[in-house]
Write a protein that binds this DNA or RNA. Structure first.
Lengths: 150, 150
DNA sequence: GTATTTGCAAACGCTTTGCCCACGA
DNA sequence: TCGTGGGCAAAGCGTTTGCAAATAC
């Protein structure tokens, strides 16, 4: 599913961003993160590598990376913003309300319907947000899915 | 499209909520609002009727009404929460990024697909959020749509 | 009468910012 | 060297809360 556009650091360079010490560490953490961490969680992970990096630096950097299209910002239902490497195909999110886990999914059919709806209202879609808030089925015959924490 | 379950005040009573002065005014404002005002906007409208009602009272009341299922809370992309009378059929939102206007739409087809996706992942949907962020088409042949402000 | 609700101001959680020093190119 | 980035602490913003006085039932 991932597109491999290179590491976060590489894409930063490609955008002409200065690669400072803190940015390198943050980029590394992002490369290793397959989930949807919030800023505090990122800072926690960054601090394990280099404890002197300030929370505000993480805030400034994620903002920068979102603006550069290197990161995606998501707003689920818990006040804080969560971030995800933009190095992947578009997908939407299913949130397991019992655990907070987030599962990614893709639906070209839904996307087509969205475009049709917008068009019929005289609009062109520039972005969308689709989130399914769910609870596990009391299920017989459990499936195997790749559920990423958070 | 609306279901007419009665006024907000009536539904409050039905839930056994105490009808105080401030709540009556807030309920009245909500009955008259066909858009998606945030708390400050609600407070502004409330203040025109009764200037002594505190902002915190509006916050407390909308929270109460959401919990009672009388109001719906929406989070679009501008930090604050917006509220809408729950006295209507379910719908999703198209946000005009050039004006901030919000258009409501319904798509049973999309909803069915959502349910299928969730089910295939072993989940049951308890809620969802679908928002289309759009810009107007440079259009010949404009349609007539009911576009509610905000 | 008694528990609930209000207004006010202070606190809150997340995020941004001003300042001045440190650092990358 | 020169301009950009970082650390720190303070401010910002939307929202919640503690408290004493006011009010619904």
């Amino acid at each position: 599913m991932d597109r491999d556009l290179g590491s976060v650091a590489e894409r930063c360079r490609a955008q002409g961003l200065r690669m400072t010490g803190p940015r390198r560490v943050i980029a590394e953490v992002l490369d290793r993160s397959v989930d949807h961490p919030d800023v505090e969680e990122l800072h926690r992970r960054v601090s394990e590598i280099e404890p002197r990096i300030a929370l505000s630096t993480v805030y400034r950097t994620v903002r920068l990376l979102v603006e550069a299209g290197i990161l995606e910002r998501h707003l689920f239902n818990d006040g804080r913003a969560r971030y995800e490497n933009a190095d992947h195909e578009h997908h939407d999110h299913l949130i397991d309300m019992t655990t907070g886990n987030v599962i990614e999914f893709r639906s070209p059919e839904i996307e087509e319907l969205q475009a049709k709806i917008a068009e019929s209202l005289g609009y062109r879609i520039t972005g969308h947000r689709l989130q399914l808030f769910c609870v596990p089925m009391k299920d017989r015959g459990r499936r195997r899915t790749v559920t990423k924490r958070d």
